[in-house]
Design a protein around this nucleic acid. Structure first.
Lengths: 216, 216
DNA sequence: CAATTATACGGAGCAGGCTCCGCTTGTCAA
DNA sequence: TTGACAAGCGGAGCCTGCTCCGTATAATTG
């Protein structure tokens, strides 16, 4: 856990002690309640109550339920980013698509590790309040990485005739928490099967190029 | 507009006159309000009020906002299904992937025609009330068609090493209303660009087969 | 034309996410 | 130490989707 506010810059007041304590207690309460009864079944009011804090205070710390969830896995996400960075770095000599494969596989790993939280984050973002559809910072990062790798693949000629940004959108949708949850829990597919499907579509499927004529 | 209830079977009572009138008035009111101020900005209470009907009655006719939206485009969807059926039929001699191409293209057409309603439908389905994640009947139909075509493509050897059901899930996610809206409105991509991207991934990208070794 | 009854109506009211705003309190500068 | 004030707190309450249930009524049956 790191500090929330970088804090103590020039003429900026430090975060108040009680504020930090409340934040900590809220996170703790949320973690426990989520574990005990599931994310969806836990209301914000409950969390506030368990932490001995009013709703107003809760929302001062976390703009919405999604942000609370995000805060709970912030550290794991940082680890994820570091690990992917390292793996991709180590593979720098390899092909861009091989690195995309790593990105996808690792993404599925962390998805698997925190599915309910990720799903809740997405749900909050999809709600009527966020009509603008802003992607969370983590998804933005994955998106950027993907665009980067696809761009490199284009440059090296590993793939051809591709729209990197658009394709990255699609790939992100394919590893979105709601879809993954549906495939895992409703359909009962194994993690390996899903990864294989992703690889078939977005790694192997992209590799060759002799793009022939396609109908109309 | 067709009847809601096939009605009048053996010993089943006919739908009451006032009920049908109310339903009609609700649909009319919804259509007008949606057109005037957008789907998201229109509350169920407003619709009921405009139709001179209480919330209870409203929900007797439409289980949720999504179902109301679905009822509004029911006819267009029927037309869509017929048209796709015809086009695919006409192309029966062509390759399965060519037919998949038709399915995707036509799907984007109807998406384009009713984006706000489709988006609202998806939103309602994604809400916390429907944790089970049931796909609507229309999406189920598209999914089934896709599985069917992919299966044929496998049989004819046009594609190889593919998981039809899983792949259909992914394709459906790629043409889901929220993603499409995001790409069209937030990113500003043209319809053609999106279609090209879909084609590249799910038609051309699937066609060849010399699946080589893939990392790890 | 009743009498019966499944069907439908209305609206009070619930739940859950989130906001508004007046009061309190920790922090810092003097 | 103390005064000033930004930062923080709490909870009443809003909004919206949706439900429950007592009452009203159209259709059917005798």
């Amino acid at each position: 856990m790191e500090q929330h506010q970088p804090v103590c810059k020039a003429h900026t007041r430090r975060e108040r002690r009680d504020a930090r304590e409340n934040r900590q207690r809220l996170l703790e309460a949320a973690k426990q309640l989520f574990a005990a009864q599931g994310v969806a079944a836990t209301t914000m009011k409950e969390i506030g109550h368990a932490a001995g804090v009013g709703p107003g205070t809760l929302y001062r710390h976390f703009a919405d339920k999604g942000e609370l969830c995000r805060a709970l896995i912030k550290d794991d996400i940082a680890v994820f980013q570091a690990r992917v960075g390292a793996r991709i770095e180590a593979e720098a000599s390899g092909s861009p698509l091989a690195r995309l494969d790593i990105l996808l596989t690792t993404r599925v790993e962390i998805l698997e590790a925190h599915l309910p939280l990720f799903a809740a984050i997405d749900e909050a973002l999809a709600g009527p309040r966020h009509t603008g559809r802003v992607r969370g910072p983590f998804d933005s990062w994955v998106h950027d990485q993907t665009v980067q790798l696809l761009g490199e693949a284009l440059a090296t000629g590993e793939v051809a005739l591709l729209d990197p940004v658009l394709t990255a959108d699609t790939i992100l949708a394919a590893v979105s928490p709601p879809l993954y949850r549906y495939q895992r829990h409703t359909c009962g597919y194994s993690r390996e099967r899903i990864i294989a499907g992703l690889r078939r579509l977005f790694v192997d499927g992209l590799r060759q190029l002799p793009i022939a004529d396609s109908p109309t």
